[in-house]
Design a protein around this nucleic acid. Sequence first.
DNA 1: TAGTGGTCTAGACCACACG
DNA 2: GTGTGGTCTAGACCACTAC
Lengths: 250, 250
Amino acid sequence: MASLSMVSLGQNADKPPLHIAISEKLKAQIEAGRYEPGARLPSEFDLGETFGVSRTTIRRAIANLTQQGLVTTQRGKGIFVSGRQKISFSMSNPLMQFDVALREQGHMGRVQSLRFQLVDASPEVVRKLALSSQSAQVYWQEKIIYAGDCPVALEIDYFPQQLGETLAQPLQQGFTYSTLSMNGIQLNGAKVSLEGVPATYELSEYLAVPLGMPLLVFNYVAYCGDRRPTICGQTLSRSDWTCYTSEFEL
Amino acid sequence: MASLSMVSLGQNADKPPLHIAISEKLKAQIEAGRYEPGARLPSEFDLGETFGVSRTTIRRAIANLTQQGLVTTQRGKGIFVSGRQKISFSMSNPLMQFDVALREQGHMGRVQSLRFQLVDASPEVVRKLALSSQSAQVYWQEKIIYAGDCPVALEIDYFPQQLGETLAQPLQQGFTYSTLSMNGIQLNGAKVSLEGVPATYELSEYLAVPLGMPLLVFNYVAYCGDRRPTICGQTLSRSDWTCYTSEFEL
DNA sequence: TAGTGGTCTAGACCACACG
DNA sequence: GTGTGGTCTAGACCACTAC
């Protein structure tokens, strides 16, 4: 039966494994429009019969597609073709105006605070915020950013103690940049970096993605006045939802 | 036997699946330093005995770690803890000076040309390079960028026909920015965006990563003179090797 | 109740690395 | 040859969705 599958897939038997051959074939069908975004694929059982392989192999092939962000699975329902346009964020602002960008691009932005507490600053935060070692306590905030019903990012911020106390309530209820801006704190510069990481198990639970899915990490230290570090942190966003843009003149 | 495993892992049986519990446990051990970067983990067989589960489940747990970039596997050899520092690229330059950044950070940069050919420009390239529809042919280049022996990025560039013809040889042998610079073409601006994507099967082969591993996509259109679009393209880099940095003043 | 995807098992065979 | 990870099978049971 295996040999039949290999023949029917037009492979010379030994090059790519069966699960790859099958996932590539399904991928081609999806991209050719045989399955529209949102459409349901045949069940694992049916796919197994179609390709003449075991359910395990089909599941491996589907896992390949999931890892490439092409399909999502729902227990009890089926396998569905995913398709979504990304939300763009301009990097030229030191702190993303997530709420503005979300609204402009047709999504209802919302935050859910996970924690907001005073902690000892890590050496890294002490360095980034240029804290004196005495006042080495900062407010540590984690919140999830939603676009509509979908969690798109986990934001982690560190605020100097006084700032965190003053703005404790609004910071837990709203978007960071807007909250600071509305309370008279104008940021005028930032040092940022952008990298990619695979979702850990914990992050995959928060952001409702499969383990290992690519996340974008936006690290920043934002300044007030004469390059006085004011807040720092990072935003981990689902890369299937987000994109950062910028322009440069030399 | 399964219940014994669950007890020994200290789980209340129903919350996380076994393969997650095991991969999280191994992850904790790795992060606690029980296994140094580069060290070999016990074989799948031994791990299966240790945790009292089947090889399939151990393989699933190892796959979880692989997807999180914590370990790599080598057929016939074993499972190894990965660990590497990222190479930083400044975004402030319109085109990454990959060679300079690599050299400064202790790596030998090298390129391998995959293709360099004249093709009909896609509508997107026509738009980005502001081509007149008549001269809608461009040189399409794809090359792999190595840091030492390790492929770290796939660069895709589109050059206007005349530029491609003039610099055909050096562009295939060297880094794009340096080549242009050495031949009197000074770029002075760029529109860029940065996103994350999971590696497709094809990309995973080029870049020697598992399918689905996060890649950073640096899209750019670079300008000469008075915002005259000169080249465009994208760099897909392994996110376990690369990081982009920038600074902003408002 | 029927159908779906999620988990897990036990076992087979293969390809590769190393001694 | 021995040990390793890679592929694939056949089958069991569970949890969830829908009717």
